[in-house]
């Protein structure tokens, strides 16, 4: 039983981190209509800045710089590339983002090489144990922080003018601009927010139990894609729920792999996508995606 609970706790905390990443995908998509395949390398950039700077300036200052740097990188990608595409087909933008991802990733890989850069977090390799359930301290903090961040996001989107303007622009950009909302600003805000969330997720993905920052971190961001898709492309709540589902299912699939041998090895790789496909078969627009308006 405590084994199950440990796996569950791990899955939930990992799922919340995936949620942070998936929410970034959603926000960029709703604010600028772009499938942001450069998200992984933005995440890696944030984590890389933290790892490089934590020595000279200390962990917390490095985290602030890393978050700001990733946000700024997002804003730059949007300003230089996305906005100039204007009304181009969304496919073009997605391919362009793949290109950006490869460029950033190549440069970061060149800088990191095959070293593993420690993230230098104060929680190190500590573990918390509550009644037989053990969880790395970093994961417990990540889970708590993710909940706080989601609360702040809720506040932003429901209670502040900027947030409501962002939602209005996402729902109907043409009408929003008739209301005086500048789409260039809501777009920039979306990219900045997504970058910041990615950097936070990156710090925790590079913390214990992972060894530190390596190029593989950018790829692990893509584990959030099934979460994004199954939650419904344009739903923040869906992205969070999707992250939790994928996190728990992955942890349980790996944890019980020896009991599921008839399905073959390496289940953890396959299961997120299998779950995504199953959900999409039942609900083609995802768990929380906008279906066609029902009221006539």
């Amino acid at each position: 039983m405590s084994y199950f609970l440990t796996q569950l706790a791990n899955g939930l905390s990992y799922g919340l981190i995936l949620g942070l990443i998936a929410v970034g995908f959603v926000i960029v998509f709703t604010s600028t209509g772009v499938l942001n395949f450069a998200h992984g390398s933005v995440l890696l950039t944030g984590a890389y800045l933290v790892a490089v700077l934590q020595g000279p300036v200390g962990f917390w200052a490095a985290v602030v710089v890393g978050i700001a740097g990733a946000a700024l990188l997002g804003v730059l990608i949007n300003a230089v590339l996305v906005r100039n595409l204007a009304e181009a087909n969304p496919g073009t933008a997605a391919i362009l983002m793949l290109g950006v991802d490869i460029l950033l990733l190549t440069e970061l890989t060149r800088r990191i090489g095959n070293r593993v850069l420690p993230i230098g977090a104060p929680w190190g390799a500590d573990v918390v144990a509550i009644g037989g359930v053990t969880l790395p301290t970093s994961r417990a903090i990540a889970a708590g922080l993710a909940v706080v961040v989601f609360g702040l996001l809720w506040f932003l989107f429901a209670r502040t003018g900027t947030g409501v303007a962002m939602r209005a622009a996402a729902a109907d950009g043409d009408t929003a601009s008739l209301m005086g909302i500048r789409l260039s600003r809501t777009g920039a805000a979306g990219w900045a927010l997504a970058g910041a969330l990615a950097a936070i997720a990156g710090v925790f993905l590079a913390s214990f139990p992972a060894p530190g920052v390596g190029p593989a971190l950018a790829i692990s961001a893509f584990a959030a894609i099934p979460a994004w898709v199954l939650g419904g492309f344009d739903s923040v709540v869906g992205a969070i729920v999707g992250g939790l589902i994928i996190g728990v299912v992955t942890a349980l699939a790996v944890g019980y792999e020896s009991h599921l041998h008839f399905l073959g090895r390496g289940l953890g790789e396959v299961v997120p996508y299998a779950v995504m496909i199953l959900v999409l078969l039942v609900r083609p627009s995802g768990l929380f995606g906008r279906a066609e308006a029902v009221r006539v």
Binding site: N10, I219, S220
Partner: peptide
């Protein structure tokens, strides 16, 4: 032998570690 298959992109082996401990 208790085999656990992974890929180079797995950098968090918590679940694998728990499974090994369980075994």
């Amino acid at each position: 032998i208790v085999p656990q298959e992974i890929t180079p992109r797995d950098t968090d082996l918590t679940a694998q570690a728990s499974a090994l401990q369980q075994a």
